[in-house]
Design a protein around this nucleic acid. Structure first.
Length: 970
RNA sequence: GGGCGAAUAGCUCAGCGGAAGAGCGUCGCCCUUACAAGGCGGUGGCCGCAGGUUCGAAUCCUGCUUCGCCCACCA
């Protein structure tokens, strides 16, 4: 048992946190056994990109997961949290290639596939290690021995198996389709990886003269350079203006080609001239139009984003932008240019590289999604998987029901190579192992497809590939499906939807029962955090602290723009104090309400840091006053079962003996233990429905407003140690009981708070004197469960009365500037016998908390020079201030109260005067309103009396000086 | 162009049919031996606007206004 009084006044997380992080890991507490007979509870961590380090979004999501996992683990579930890292193919490419260009002025093609991959792996080793270290630092109880990487051997095997099976089932196919080409990364990207943004551009009109004269057709375009690849002009079949043109040909300027005019319904006659130039190779609409009308396809832009033959020689090799200028100039020179106007152009940009995406016609690998999506929709419709908050269900459904085939091939190197081999005969062999002969012609010269798979393909398999699939493992049987997936709404399509499809297809079961979508963390102004803006809060800086200088130095090293540096100076002028992982975790939990965004700022974390410190000091106080406390004796006294390590929350007495023992406790003891049970119930209920904020706030308010502000204050006199204890066994016994209740309340609080703030709770818990049967760590104790036996409505009501009277006395003191050091006499009047008896019973508590000496009476006459206030309707507090009372101020205060009461009375009378209300509202509601009206009327009477008294004592008083106070009341 | 969401105290947000709440800020008074990262008290709200449903609306419905976000191939 520790009774150290040497604890520091301020909690220092930097010393405490690493110690317990090591302790938990060394003891293997995070590891779950797949063979355990207990009920499994599993979560798979969304694997962070290997490119990054832990950012605030990870901190949020992972903290919520850790809260769930630690909570369920303490509720005796076989809790498993699967760690891992994602290879993030295109993100790694962008990052490494940028670096390569800057340092060596080379492209990945200069380096070659092999050398590039060597560097990528080296990067992965460094970066991946850093991420898991950061996760350990945050206290995340991940099952480390299971840690996986999306490109490790097992994942490779799963990916190949999935690919081959889907291919054999006809769900993966190769086809020439219109795709999104990223000319910077030189790869195709999926529809989801393109962001369409409106950018300012121009709308050019071009005149196409009819072959053989007789007029011209004017077309409008935002991309004049593509006219070099035009193979037709389309008009609406019903458009009178162009009826005669259909079937004729026009001259395509600059090219010497002639192209036909065709009719197609996709043309909107009301837009522009009503005629559209058709470039089938470089526009999805035009491609479809060509399919319908039989126009030929002419590719004039190559994969590097440059013009190519059959565009006229002079343009070949120009970038799209250069070609645009040249074409416009040449058109103008040829007199073929019409009006030009400014225009907002929707432009697709590659999410990763930022390059303008070029629609191209190319042969690629696709997943046929129609049937897969159908099952994924059905699973959500039938409730096998639920979204929390529910509103995301619609987003998922809408996308799923409008899903398009998924282009999965990428012309990159870092990723899973597609298990397909091309033969000179043109056939493709898809196989698990490199084939020795072509499956079609038997030829032996095979070359593997150069492409790799979209990163999200391996991610889609993650919930089961991490558990050993395609083997039928014990892990899969135990932990699949996962109970929950916690992730951001921004990857519902990328990831959640695809896991649903693949999970249902390969496992026949949904991958998770609940999808909990977190909010998105923004800065205090609601702007997305980004390094270019300089508003990023790095979770590790919050944990360890960072001076402004350090932040600026880092920004400098990262070549942050000037605006970012300016913002860093503004947002982090005083740097970031070291607040510890607990403070950050608790802050995130408290801020995680049902909204879509969390505005985070350093000040908001400080509130939680302060809370942790408050808890620390309350524990410090307890430890200073727990000498001589014997947990086993206390447990026996209260008939708390001391069964094995799994014994329920320390407060858990049962049976008649227990009830008798409880009744013998003092009111504050019964009250705080009752409140504790209520809070335990609230926390469980809140977490059950993913209301993290409610759960954290319930504990916050219990600890601060009830345990610290009231219980500890009321316990102090009993804890005081002195010679009188030896002479008075009753006092000594009482002290021991109070010690026991305080220790118990704290111990239970540590359990409740542990999932949110694991470090400080473990530190305190280890120091608290407690039963020897308990396990070696707080994290494997049992989570408190609300126990009705301890709920004590009478104690709660009595305490409320004490608090009300004390608070009212304090208010009068403060109003009249009675200094805290000065005891002051008050008269407490209560006409109701029950209330008066209670006040008398708890008078010492009231006197102590309000620093008064009180006399209690049933009623009395006017007391001149006394300030007066009401507690509820019946109880009056009179504070005699002699001639020092400020009559005007007192009058003002009371009149204001009367104003409020009058408003209440008017509203209630109106309500009760309404026959419909009496007839239709439920009985208890009507009764309640009646009781309230009666109370308000009593209050009104008392306040009016007080005002009369004041008027009578009247003019003489009122210097405004409080008793011994300098300023008096305002 | 479709869809989703939000408007409540100075700020950030809870509450979602029966008495307007929290945190931060602000204003007083206090270094009262657990805690100044603290204590005690105060101030502050036609719950976006207009209708409707209901005995009763911040809460349900409709419309409007303003802000977000997502999806979508109009040259």
């Amino acid at each position: 048992m520790t009774t150290s009084t040497a604890l520091p006044k301020q909690y220092d997380p930097s010393e405490v946190e690493p110690r317990w992080a090591r302790f938990w890991l060394e003891n293997g507490y995070f590891h779950a056994d797949e063979s355990s007979p207990t009920v499994p509870y599993s979560i798979t961590l969304p694997p962070p990109n290997v490119t990054g380090s832990l950012h605030i979004g990870h901190a949020l999501g992972s903290t919520m997961q850790d809260i769930l996992i630690r909570w369920k683990r303490m509720h005796s579930f076989n809790a498993m949290w699967m760690p891992g890292i994602d290879h993030a193919s295109i993100a790694v490419h962008v990052l490494l290639e940028k670096d390569l260009k800057r340092r060596e002025s080379k492209t990945r093609f200069d380096l070659g596939r092999e050398e590039f991959l060597r560097r990528a792996w080296a990067w992965k080793e460094r970066s991946g290690h850093r991420i898991s270290e950061q996760e350990k630092l945050m206290g995340f109880s991940l099952d480390w021995p299971r840690e996986r990487f999306t490109m490790d051997e097992k994942s490779n095997r799963a990916v190949i198996e999935a690919f081959v099976r889907l291919y054999e089932e006809g769900l993966i196919f190769r086809a020439k389709r219109m795709i999104n080409w990223d000319p910077a990364s030189e790869t195709v990207v999926s529809d989801l990886e393109v962001d369409v943004v409106e950018e300012s551009g121009s709308l050019w009109e071009i005149r196409y003269p009819l072959v053989g004269g007789g007029g011209e057709i004017v077309v409008a375009t935002t991309r004049p350079e593509t006219m070099l690849g035009d193979t037709g002009v389309a008009v609406h079949p019903d458009d009178e203006r162009y009826r005669d043109f259909v079937g004729k040909h026009v001259e395509l300027p600059l090219t010497g080609r002639t192209i036909p005019v065709v009719a197609d319904t996709f043309v909107d006659p009301a837009f522009g001239s009503g005629a559209v130039k058709v470039t089938p190779a470089h526009d999805p609409n035009d491609y479809e139009c060509a399919q319908r009308t039989g126009l030929p396809i002419l590719q004039v832009i190559d994969p590097r984003g440059r013009m190519c033959a059959p565009a006229p020689e002079k343009y070949v090799g120009l970038t799209v932008e250069e070609a645009r200028k040249a074409v416009v100039a040449d058109l103008e020179a040829a007199g073929a240019l019409g009006n030009v106007k400014d225009y907002k152009v929707p432009r697709g940009r590659s999410q990763r590289s930022g390059a303008v995406v070029e629609p191209m016609l190319m042969e690629q690998w696709f997943v046929k999604t129609a049937t897969l999506a159908e099952k994924a929709v059905a699973a959500v419709e039938s409730g096998k998987t639920k979204f929390v908050p529910e509103l995301w269900t619609k987003t998922y459904m809408h996308w799923m029901t409008n899903i398009r085939d998924w282009c999965i091939s990428r012309q990159l190197w870092w990723g899973h190579r597609i298990p397909a081999w091309h033969c000179a005969c043109g056939a493709i062999t898809v196989a698990r192992e490199a084939p020795t002969a072509c499956a079609t012609c038997g030829g032996a010269t095979l070359s593997q497809d150069d492409d790799i798979l979209d990163t999200w393909f391996s991610s889609a398999l993650w919930p089961f590939s991490t558990l050993g699939w395609p083997e039928k493992t014990r892990e899969l049987a135990t932990f699949y499906p996962n109970n929950v997936l916690v992730t951001g709404p921004d990857i519902i399509f990328f990831w959640v939807a695809r896991m649903m499809m693949m999970g249902l297809h390969f496992m026949g079961k949904v991958p998770f029962r609940t999808v909990y979508l977190t909010a998105i963390v923004t800065d205090e102004n609601g702007d997305k955090m980004s390094k270019t803006k300089g508003n990023v809060i790095d979770p590790l800086d919050v944990v360890h602290g960072a001076s402004l200088d350090q932040l600026l130095k880092r920004a400098d090293a990262e070549n942050a723009p000037e605006a970012a540096v300016k913002n860093i100076r503004k947002y982090f002028a005083k740097g970031i104090p070291a607040m510890g992982a607990d403070a950050l975790r608790f802050a995130l939990a408290r801020l995680n309400t049902s909204g879509r965004y969390i505005r985070l700022s350093i000040e908001r974390v400080e509130g939680s840091r302060n809370f942790i410190n408050k808890l620390w000091n309350a524990s410090r106080f307890a430890l200073m006053n727990l000498d001589g406390y014997e947990p086993e004796r206390f447990a026996a006294q209260l008939h708390i079962p001391v069964g094995g390590a799994g014994a329920a929350g320390a407060a858990g007495a049962a049976g008649a003996a227990g009830a008798a023992a409880r009744a013998a406790l003092g009111m504050p003891e019964r009250w705080i233990l009752s409140r504790l049970q209520a809070v335990a119930g609230e926390v469980d209920a809140a977490l059950e429905s993913f209301r993290f904020s409610d759960a954290a706030n319930a504990i916050y308010h219990f600890v601060w407003d009830e345990l610290c502000d009231w219980y500890i204050e009321l316990a102090k006199p009993h804890l005081h140690q002195g010679p009188e204890l030896e002479q008075d066994p009753a006092k000594a016994a009482r002290r021991h009981v109070v010690q026991g209740v305080l220790a118990t309340a704290l111990e239970t609080t540590m359990r409740l708070l542990h999932p949110f703030a694991p470090y400080v709770t473990e530190e305190i818990w280890q120091k608290l004197p407690k039963l020897p049967q308990l396990p070696g760590s707080l994290m494997i104790t049992v989570f408190p469960r609300r126990d009705e036996a301890w709920i004590d409505a009478a104690a709660e009501a009595e305490m409320q009365l004490v608090q009300g009277v004390a608070t009212t006395c304090r208010m009068l003191r403060a109003t009249y500037g009675v200094p805290p050091s000065q005891q002051i006499a008050v008269e407490l009047r209560a006409s109701a016998d029950a209330a008066r008896a209670l006040i008398e019973k708890h008078l010492p508590l009231i006197e102590r908390s309000a620093r008064i000496t009180a006399t209690v009476v049933a009623s009395g006459g006017p007391v001149p020079g006394a300030a007066k206030a009401l507690v509820g309707a019946d109880i009056e507090v009179l504070m005699p201030l002699g001639g020092l009372i400020d009559v005007a101020a007192e009058k003002g205060r009371i009149e204001k109260d009367i104003g409020k009461v009058d408003k209440e009375i008017a509203a209630l009378e109106k309500k009760l005067g309404n026959a419909d209300f009496l007839a239709r509202a439920p009985e208890d509601v009507v009764e309640e309103q009646r009781a309230r009206l009666a109370d308000e009327q009593t209050r009104r009477q008392r306040l009016a009396d007080a005002l009369d008294t004041l008027a009578a004592s009247g003019s003489g008083g009122g210097g405004g000086a409080g008793v011994g106070g300098a300023g008096g009341a305002a």
